[in-house]
Design a protein around this nucleic acid. Structure first.
Length: 863
DNA sequence: ACGAACCTCCTTTTT
DNA sequence: GGAGGTTCGT
């Protein structure tokens, strides 16, 4: 029922672009009529493309060709002459998605798409609109977009000014609250008083208000403002709103399930038919909205009166507007892939689409062109346990393929070892490492894999992590440029006054602040003034004077120097480059590389000003080297990607689903975790492999875990229980008593394979033995069970040489290493160290910081 | 003003 | 276990 496999049909076709014209002869006949870009679409996709009038919701399950629908729809609108490129608003969440769409459109239309000025992320488009009407938000059009660091620093200052203990009320927490309010479309005056009072004994609301004031003074906006200020402008200036409503004949939205309330409001305003504009009652905006908070929980279902009071409350200011006719908006999304609720995304937006946009046409894309039958069935069965969903049933015409495997391990190290071996096995049968991904719930899980892969010499790459422009060195460099560009940028100035160290510490900065506040001038000007006095100690005074002089010089040079050259000069003369050159830590080289990359990327912009305006929104690290490597990332960052082989470790209660999510979000949290599992499984084309460990080290201490409830929710028919390659045989519950999974009543009904029963038997066998600490005395056992040539951390405890056999021998080049004992070496991840042992191409290195590690020699270089 | 010792709190993170 | 922040001693 989940799967409708038609063996007669085409073989595995996983790339959506080349999908067969499924749907039988009739459909194919229809598809052959009409423009060529329509051919090759299945009937549902085609309907989604051709239904141009009125609101449309395309529910596009994983791997059903949603990007294709979006781009084809745009092509269709253009080629039908329904609108010109500049009249189509097309929003995505990520720059990557926007780029991808531009690229695909370009291919489809056969020429570059310069004419799509309004295809971009919510934030870049919001930012663009805000820049053109900046004065209506008390900003100048060259305002800076603040990053989180700046925000927190600013809030810290506000907290200090209010004499609030920022231990008890951390600036970060306030930043989070404000961000949340902005995500919900709430200006300071609209924050429910209860919520505003929660922070710092009732000062939360006031702080939000003064934060906004400070932003205006600094000529700055945070990410939230890029949309919120749009909404404010649209509401307060109906003429401007009307202008945009008239311009955008068609609106397309990607990943609609991830929109937050602010984005929803923004879309609602833009998608109303122009004539309706007058109906918005500005006065409504000032009403505090107490109900929003309730809504965000699970109370939605309790409200029987969705159409009147509740709805109006949910969408502040939309009371009248909601009745206005809606134009051509097409939202594409998948409620089953909504995994950003904690960031303010409202699944409700997609669940309530038909209600919000009356007369909406809902089109379901349920044909999956990515995964094999077993994988899809497992994913579908899992997600079917969610209640709050619109309901889709993915199906494939592909073969069943391999069953999803579930493997239990004794602990997380064994899990990593087992996966490492399976990857090598896959490699042996010709799988590309690029087609292998490990998807974890939390990034701390990655370390064990990294360690393991380093010792195996298995190339891997970590996807995600801090974005390029979030890196300290990039922010520092940008801060220098910001100060040059706008001397009033206090936050930037403060960031770099003492970076690199110039002997200008807190005391000096505090002094500058006092001075600046008294005279109502920027910090930089205060510095200029202060060096003329003798208020500072000679040393500080001297270096501050030098700094001011340097900036003056750079500003003068700006007129005659290309902005990229200027940047290079600034980095060198300020001593910033030197600071990292002298730094001996492992990542210093990478940071210098990043700085070069930053300078290089400036070339794409005309001048410094243009660069700074867009950098915060556009920069993301993109082109990692194309070499063959295993991908390691969180489930969240895997959304939108696909791989032939997907490893899903850590399916244990508390980790996945995450205990914290369960505690904080209750059932809604559980459902979001389940969606995360669904996302994970549906990333796989041909092989999905799930793992759980009985013992895991969390925050430094070992604890016993029980398998995730999601394992119970997988359909037995599509799942195979296997034993850990790393030697699951030593399993045991570690003396912590029985879990509900020991009870065959609960688990056994669906799991009766020999492998599972063996695993059950094994886990009971170890019972009662080694308690406390989990890994107390099992090292003796390790040798007899592990088939691995290398026992990872066991090795350090064992006496005598390891027996090297099997794979690693084959991998060893045989020739002795080019390194010798005590050689000083450098490793990308671990930094500097010296060689303490050599074993073919395997080196044992005592790293200065990271301790002793085994590393394959190709991973290090002479220091 | 700055580094070392010390304490703390641990998810996820499109812009 | 360790990063990031704070405090304390120089």
């Amino acid at each position: 029922m989940i799967r409708m496999t038609e063996p007669s049909k085409i073989t595995s076709q996983s790339v959506p672009d080349h999908q067969p014209a499924a749907g039988g002869i009739a459909a194919r006949a229809r598809a052959s009529v009409g423009p060529k870009y329509l051919s090759g679409l299945n009937p549902e996709q085609r309907e989604a493309v051709e239904t141009l009038d009125g609101p449309v919701l395309v529910l596009a399950g994983a791997g059903t060709g949603k990007t294709r629908v979006l781009t084809t729809r745009i092509a269709h609108i253009l080629s039908q002459g329904r609108a010109r490129p500049g009249e189509i608003l097309s929003v995505t969440f990520t720059n990557k998605a926007a780029r991808e769409m531009k690229h695909r459109l370009g291919q489809m239309l056969g020429h570059a798409v310069e004419g799509m000025p309004w295809l971009g992320t919510f934030h870049s488009i919001g930012g663009r609109i805000l820049r053109t009407h900046a004065e209506l938000a008390q900003l100048k059009s060259n305002f800076t977009v603040l990053d989180v660091d700046d925000q927190v620093r600013l809030l810290k200052q506000l907290l200090q000014a209010e004499n609030i203990d920022d231990k008890r009320w951390p600036a970060r927490m306030l930043a989070g609250l404000i961000d949340g309010w902005k995500n919900r479309g709430l200006m300071p005056s609209q924050v429910p008083s209860g919520e505003a009072a929660m922070f710092a004994n009732g000062k939360g609301g006031k702080l939000y208000a003064s934060y906004q004031e400070r932003l205006k003074i600094l000529n700055a906006a945070d990410f939230g403002d890029l949309l919120l200020e749009n909404i404010r402008i649209f509401r307060e200036h109906p003429d401007i709103l009307r202008q945009y409503q008239q311009r955008f004949k068609y609106i397309l939205v990607d990943e609609y399930q991830d929109t937050n309330v602010a984005q929803y409001l923004w879309l609602r305003l833009l998608s109303q038919a122009p004539a309706a504009t007058k109906a918005v009652i500005p006065g409504r905006l000032e009403e505090p909205n107490h109900d929003v908070q309730e809504h965000v929980g699970e109370s939605g279902d309790e409200s029987t009166d969705r159409d009147s009071g509740f709805d109006a409350a949910h969408r502040p200011g939309m009371t009248v507007a909601a009745a206005a006719p809606t134009k051509n908006i097409c939202c594409v999304g998948d409620d089953d892939q909504s995994i950003y609720g904690w960031r303010g995304a409202e699944v409700d937006n997609i669940l309530r689409f038909e209600h919000d946009f009356p007369g909406a046409k809902v089109i379901r894309l349920e044909r999956n062109y990515r995964s094999t039958g077993h994988i899809l069935a497992a994913a579908s069965h899992l997600i079917a346990h969610n209640e709050g969903r619109l309901g889709k049933t993915l199906r494939t015409e592909d073969q069943d393929g391999e069953k999803v495997t579930v493997t239990g391990s004794w602990d997380s190290e064994e899990e990593a070892r087992g996966i490492g071996e399976e990857i090598e096995q896959l490699q042996r049968i010709g799988e590309k490492l690029n087609e292998i991904a490990i998807l974890v719930r939390a990034s701390y899980q990655m370390r064990e894999f990294e360690d393991r892969f380093v010792t195996l010499g298995l190339p891997y790459r970590v996807i995600g992590g801090p974005r390029f422009y979030e890196r300290a060195e990039i922010r520092d460099a940008l801060a220098y440029l910001r100060v040059i560009n706008s001397p009033a940028d206090d936050l930037a100035f403060e960031r770099i006054v003492n970076t690199p160290k110039r002997g200008l510490g807190d005391a000096t900065v505090q002094m500058l602040h006092d001075h600046a506040r008294k005279r109502r001038i920027p910090l930089f000007e205060a510095a200029r003034a202060v060096v003329e006095t003798d208020e500072l100690k000679p040393k500080a005074r001297g270096s501050l004077r030098d700094l001011v002089a340097q900036f003056d010089r750079w500003r003068a040079q700006r007129e005659v120097t290309a902005h990229t050259d200027l940047a290079q000069i600034v980095l060198d003369e300020s001593g910033y480059t030197e600071m990292w050159q002298k730094d001996r830590s492992a990542d210093a080289a990478g940071r210098l590389e990043n700085l070069k990359e930053l300078v290089r990327s400036m070339e794409e912009f005309e001048n410094l000003q243009g660069f700074l305006e867009h950098i915060a929104l556009v920069m993301d690290r993109d082109g990692e080297a194309e070499e063959d490597a295993v991908s390691l990332m969180t489930l969240h960052s895997a959304k939108g990607l696909e791989f032939d082989n997907v490893f899903l470790p850590g399916w244990e209660e508390g980790l996945f689903p995450s205990q914290r999510t369960l505690d904080e979000q209750g059932r809604a949290g559980l459902e979001e975790e389940r969606r995360l599992g669904h996302v994970g499984l549906t990333r796989a084309r041909r092989r999905a492999k799930i793992y759980f460990a009985t013992n895991r080290r969390i925050h430094g201490t070992w604890s016993t875990t029980i398998p995730s409830r999601f394992l119970d929710e997988l359909p037995a028919a599509n799942v195979e229980i296997t034993e850990s390659k790393g030697g699951s045989a030593w399993g045991g519950t570690g003396g912590y008593g029985a879990s509900r999974f020991d009870d065959m009543e609960a688990f056994g009904s669906s799991y009766s394979t020999p492998g599972w029963q063996r695993a059950q038997a094994n886990r009971n066998r170890g019972q009662g033995g080694r308690s406390g600490g989990g890994r107390g005395g099992f090292e003796e056992e390790a040798s007899s069970f592990s088939s691995s040539p290398d026992f990872g951390s066991f090795s350090s405890r064992r006496r005598g040489p390891l027996t090297i056999e099997g794979e690693l021998v084959a991998k060893s080049t045989g020739t002795t290493s080019e390194f010798s004992l005590d050689d000083r070496v450098f490793h990308q991840k671990f930094g500097y160290g010296h060689v303490t042992k050599i074993d073919g191409n395997k080196l044992t290195i005592a790293f200065d910081k990271a301790g002793e590690k085994k590393v394959v020699d190709s991973f290090v270089q002479r220091a």
